[in-house]
């Protein structure tokens, strides 16, 4: 019971989801050629994941650095920002993250995964995890069809990932620099905000262990 860090479990689930989400966004928004993507299965639905080692490493390193902050509930949001050729933001996918109030109550359910059993033989933890998986699946599906409601981006776009912290970013700088050759810097104001943005809500996930 004491060995399991619950924040770590939530961060693992969330970072795994964010990894899939980033790949899907890059595929759907055609940031990279579709030839580098392969169909895989995640959360029981088909997803498109890059098979380009350098890009995959970049995404993994980014999320690996963010994870310690998520564990400590210090991330307010993670943003996948699509930038045009001149590096101006043209589109943002914003993942707002908060810890639901029931988190501490639910601790025991995950620590003792097979107890307590309900009458139909399904443990609370099974149904909890199944519920989380359903939410993650629904969110990935929403991302997979979001191009239907978005305009095309200009050619030659690239992307970056922004991490909005709850406290001033300076306080979290050391915590996020967990990979030696993958330094982080403060984002400039013009990189964070867009002029006259239009907001399109995609999906809200609320479960006992995470809210996005």
């Amino acid at each position: 019971r004491q060995d399991l860090n619950f924040g770590q479990v939530v961060a693992d689930v969330l970072c795994e989801f964010l990894e899939v989400a980033v790949h899907m966004i890059l595929y759907v928004r055609e940031v990279y050629p579709i030839g580098i993507f392969q169909k895989r299965k995640k959360y029981n639905v088909p997803v498109q994941m890059s098979c380009h080692p350098e890009l995959n490493q970049y995404i993994q390193d980014t999320l690996h650095c963010i994870k310690p902050l998520i564990e400590k509930n210090e991330v307010d949001r993670v943003v996948v920002m699509i930038l045009d050729k001149e590096h101006h933001p043209v589109e943002r996918f914003v993942f707002e993250i908060s810890q639901p109030p029931l988190l501490s109550v639910r601790l025991n359910v995950l620590v003792f995964p097979k107890l307590p059993f309900t009458l139909d033989g399904v443990s609370d933890s099974d149904s909890l995890l199944s519920h989380v998986e359903q939410l993650l699946r629904a969110s990935i599906l929403k991302i997979s069809v979001c191009d239907a409601i978005l305009e095309s981006n200009p050619p030659g776009c690239t992307f970056t990932v922004l991490v909005h912290t709850r406290d001033a970013a300076t306080r979290n700088m050391e915590k996020i620099q967990v990979i030696k050759d993958f330094p982080w810097i403060h984002a400039d104001e013009q990189e964070v905000n867009m002029r006259e943005p239009r907001l399109i809500p995609l999906k809200t996930m609320t479960s006992d262990i995470l809210k996005v």
Partner: peptide, 29 residues
Amino acid sequence: INRTSGAHVLKPLMSPPSREEIVATLLDH
């Protein structure tokens, strides 16, 4: 959605591989 200022935002110093770099790698293969 714009309520967070730049003072609260971090980003990786390095950029991901560009589309051109990736296309070049594909052509190499």
